[in-house]
């Protein structure tokens, strides 16, 4: 049973997240270890297992990038590992520029404005890539899936940049 089937949902990228949350809570109500605190140790062990599995399934479907990754795995699309090199030179150049932009934030005259601007830039580029990946996932041809997998990898780069910006913000706030 795959995670979509587990939650009784259609295998689509655009899913009803409210329904997902509802089913999740319903499933946890039936298997959560708290319900088995006075049951046999056998059942307690199983409850932990099932509950962990449902948590993992929920996280895999709730987060859009994880959901994309899970769908591509189900479709048998090969996922390049993190160390594999990128052939897309344009993209790599852009990543370097963005890194420079982040490095300069702390020297800006108006740091708040610089952080705001950097966030905007990252978000716009993320959104663009995300929409493309969405369409490719919907196409669901072997070629489209491969392209979606490339874009997913690029989106993860943006996610990392965003995280670095968050850390930078924390750091500037606290000192």
């Amino acid at each position: 049973m795959n995670y979509f089937q587990l939650f009784g949902l259609e295998e689509k990228f655009n899913l009803d997240t409210e329904r997902l949350a509802q089913v999740y809570q319903k499933l946890q109500r039936s298997v959560h270890p708290d319900r088995f605190a006075h049951a046999s140790s056998q059942e307690q062990m199983l409850a932990v297992q099932k509950s962990s599995m449902i948590n993992d399934a929920y996280q895999s479907l709730k987060n859009p990038l994880k959901r994309a990754e899970y769908m591509l795995t189900l479709r048998g699309t090969e996922m390049p590992n993190e160390q594999a090199s990128f052939k897309d030179n344009m993209f790599l150049m852009r990543q370097m520029e963005l890194r420079e932009m982040l490095a300069e934030v702390k020297f800006a005259d108006d740091i708040d404005a610089a952080i705001f601007e950097a966030t905007q830039v990252l978000e716009i580029e993320f959104e663009g890539l995300f929409k493309t990946m969405q369409t490719q996932l919907a196409d669901n041809t072997e070629e489209a899936n491969q392209l979606a997998s490339d874009n997913l990898r690029k989106l993860k780069f943006y996610q990392k940049l965003h995280l670095e910006l968050d850390r930078l913000e924390d750091f500037l706030f606290e000192t």
């Binding site: 587990l6 939650f7 009784g8 509802q22 089913v23 319903k26 499933l27 109500r29 039936s30 298997v31 046999s40 140790s41 056998q42 059942e43 199983l46 409850a47 099932k50």
Partner: peptide, 26 residues
Amino acid sequence: VVNQATATFAERRMDSSIRTALSGQS
């Protein structure tokens, strides 16, 4: 011994309650 004897039973019960939770949903 009892734990061993009830292992499969426990598993089936858990799966059945998951199914019930799901069907209740639909």
